Simulated assay, not measured.
Amino acid sequence: MTISVVVADDQELVRSGFALILDTQADMRVVAEASDGFAAIEAVRAHRPQVLLLDIRMPGMDGIEAARVVCGETDTRVLMLTTFDQDDYVYDALCAGASGFLLKDVRRDDLVRAVQVVADGDSLLAPSVTRRLIDDMVSRRPRQAPAGLDLLTARERETLTLLGRGLSNAEIAAAFVVSEHTVKTHVSNLFAKLGLRDRVQAVITAYESGLIRPGG
């Protein structure tokens, strides 16, 4: 199956460079490019891509607002582009529904792999920089129990805690001594009860609710 992608970045060289890399992949097709948030939203509405590669800092409407609209209206998965040492807005982008982020100096193979991972419905949680980022951002904000947390069963709450620590379904299954299918059911149920889009939002929820402490 071919993965359809929209690339949005106000820097033409960056945008065209990423588009060229992705378009050369046998299983990917860039269906549109956009130079700002408004154009990115229109491109998504017109083409309904599986993945939107979206810069955080753009003129007119920034990537955070664009991500909020796209994630609220469509099933398109959003992969944010950022410079880690300058952007303090990545956490807001993840809360808006983005499924992860990439540094703009990402290697070619990592870019391709990231788009594949997000298109498959997973999230970019593996890089340690993601955990450090969430640690940092959540530590600055007051914790509050998200709506629906009290609806979780004890096992679903334990699952959310382990998701917050970055464990995969297989690792959670090993910890619970159950099948991976059972873990997938727990994950699906807690996502539905909490209104979560993916594992990134589960991590954020685990932190904000106090199930996971920054640095823990």
Rank of each mutant, 00 (worst) to 15 (best):
M137C: 14
A206T: 04
T130M: 15
V183L: 02
V7P: 08
Y89K: 11
G164A: 03
L211G: 10
Q86C: 02
L133D: 02
E180M: 03
S168I: 01
A114D: 06
Q25F: 02
R68D: 04
S99C: 12
L52G: 13
K104S: 00
D9M: 03
A19K: 13
A114E: 05
S4Q: 14
S128F: 10
A192D: 11
M1R: 03
A26T: 07
S188W: 05
T76V: 08
T185K: 14
S123M: 05
K193L: 15
E208R: 15
A145H: 13
G210K: 02
R113E: 13
R143W: 02
L20P: 00
L211N: 11
D92H: 14
I21A: 12
L54I: 00
V51P: 10
R132W: 10
D92R: 15
V183A: 03
V7S: 09
R199D: 12
F191Q: 08
S35V: 09
V31D: 10
T153E: 14
A202T: 10
A34Y: 09
V5G: 09
L111K: 07
G148W: 04
V112L: 01
V69W: 09
L160Y: 02
R15I: 10
M58R: 01
R157Q: 15
L196A: 03
L211I: 13
R15P: 11
F38M: 11
D92W: 10
Q11E: 09
E180L: 00
Y91D: 05
D122C: 02
H181G: 09
M137Y: 14
D9P: 05
D92N: 14
R29S: 15
V44T: 03
G166F: 03
R45M: 08
D9F: 04
G37Q: 06
G215Y: 08
P59C: 00
D10S: 05
D92I: 06
T24L: 14
T130Y: 14
V138E: 12
D27Y: 08
I212E: 02
P146W: 14
A96W: 12
L79F: 09
E65M: 06
V90Q: 02
L151A: 15
G60K: 02
G166R: 05
Q116P: 06
P146C: 11
G210V: 07
Y207D: 01
T161E: 10
A126K: 10
M80V: 12
D136C: 11
V138N: 00
D109N: 15
G215C: 07
Y91Q: 04
D120W: 06
A206H: 06
M61A: 06
G210A: 03
G121P: 10
I41T: 07
I204E: 01
T159M: 12
R131A: 13
P146L: 13
D87I: 00
G100K: 07
V5S: 11
L94D: 03
D62L: 01
R155G: 01
L160P: 02
Y89M: 08
R77N: 12
A19C: 13
A67P: 02
E180A: 08
A192G: 01
D62Q: 00
Q11C: 00
R131K: 10
R68P: 02
V115N: 09
D110L: 05
A173Q: 14
